[in-house]
Amino acid sequence: MDPQQLRFTTSHEWIAPDGTVGISDHAQHEITDVVFVELPKSGRAVKAQEPCAVVESVKAAFDIYAPVAGTIAAVNEETAKNPALVNQHPYGAGWLYKMTMASPADREKLMTHEGYQTFLKSATH
């Protein structure tokens, strides 16, 4: 996926126009080697910012939040089987789940890729 098409949260998730959700390249780098991914069940209704997945490195577990409200439509079983995909292809094969957004307009309120880069600079300096 082209990162330019994605919208980002301050908790480092991204969401594509079709509702696909993953974590940012910055996040995978900070988490380091992902060794385990726990995904939500399809059909689960989630609120915005609700924890609905877990990504774990050797050292720690990280909650992954729903970027917007909606329903879990599909999960990436490949990532569950091979968690290193999150590190290798954070914007591609390492996606986590896909959601049906309650209101696609919610996504537009999130940061653009450019906005996210600015946010990262302000957050780390």
């Binding site: 380091t32 080697d33 060794v35 490195s57 050797v58 050292k59």
Partner: peptide, 8 residues
């Protein structure tokens, strides 16, 4: 805590 990565 790590250089290249814990796994490697």
């Amino acid at each position: 805590v790590q250089f290249e990565g814990v796994m490697a």
